[in-house]
């Protein structure tokens, strides 16, 4: 089947999506809570509350979710949320993990879509169940065990996407910090390709490196980083899905910025 979305464009432009909605040739997935979805969503979008995906993220479960949403191996899929793209990137990652290729983020959040005056609806589209295969994509997944094994490797860069203060207080040894907010730009969930490349260049991160991203607990903030890196063509990016929460519970080593009371600078 012909790809409905230009694969050179990493994220789908909201204007383009409007055209695709008319054609009804793609699957749009809203990952907000059910209640929010019911109050209004992008026309033709189906609902997958993130919690449902997180409840069981085995490949079988992801496969079933995809099939129930009418996503076959070839269905071009677009995901959106109202949380600066973090929840939807986690869903993108899950679909990619079971081998789905044509899945993209929408470049704006639901609120921004609404503010732009674009079509929303409360109608729930009818879903025809589809068949989706499972072709596990192991190179985009990192486990604690894997991370620990490779973290000293010269070519490995570990990126912590939590906010700066959380990072200063504790992080995986050797990780560098790129807070998820750094990935966005005015009014768009991601920087431009050029902006993203500049950030990596300034930080001395080679695009040939093996990059592993993590965040606080379920891989959402780091999912956004995963997606941002993938979308500019960085070939080897992995998501440490269970992130720092698991790392801590496994009592793995932790680093900290010592001898400074940085928390007291926060006005929160």
């Amino acid at each position: 089947m012909c790809c409905m979305i230009d694969s050179d464009i990493p994220i789908i432009n909201s204007k383009l999506l409007r055209e695709k909605i008319q054609e009804n040739s793609i699957r749009i997935v809203d990952v907000r809570r059910e209640q929010e979805y019911q109050q209004g969503h992008i026309t033709n979008a189906v609902n997958l509350p993130l919690a449902k995906l997180l409840a069981d993220d085995s490949s079988e479960s992801i496969q079933k979710i995809a099939q129930d949403l009418g996503i076959s191996d070839e269905t071009p899929t677009v995901i959106y949320d109202d949380t600066f793209g973090a929840l939807s990137s986690r869903v993108v990652w899950a679909l990619q993990y079971i081998g789905h290729e044509d899945v993209k983020l929408l470049d704006v959040t639901f609120s921004q879509w609404k503010d732009l005056g674009y079509e929303i609806s409360t109608e729930v589209p009818e879903i025809e169940t589809a068949t989706h295969s499972v072709k596990i994509n192991p190179e985009i997944m990192a486990t604690a065990e894997y991370l620990e094994k490779v973290k000293e490797n010269k070519n490995v860069v570990i990126i912590d996407n939590r906010e700066r203060l959380n990072y200063l207080e504790q992080h995986i040894p050797g990780a560098i910090n790129i807070p998820y907010r750094t990935l966005a730009t005015d009014g768009k969930i991601l920087r431009t390709k050029e902006g993203m490349k500049t950030l990596l260049k300034n930080r001395g991160i080679s695009e040939d490196a093996e990059i592993i991203t993590y965040c606080g607990s379920v891989g959402t903030l780091s999912g956004l980083a995963y997606y941002a890196l993938k979308s500019i063509g960085v070939p080897n990016v992995k998501l440490y899905v269970h992130s720092f929460k698991e790392w801590k519970s496994l009592e793995k080593p932790i680093d900290k910025q010592e001898n400074a009371n940085y928390w007291d600078l926060s006005a929160e």
Binding site: L265, S266, A267, E268
Partner: peptide, 20 residues
């Protein structure tokens, strides 16, 4: 939010500072 700690600081010399 992007590069500092999510707070800024107003100094005694009318500067605005971003820490860390």
């Amino acid at each position: 939010e992007m590069y500092s700690i999510g707070s800024a600081h107003f100094s005694t010399r009318e500067n605005i500072q971003l820490h860390w």
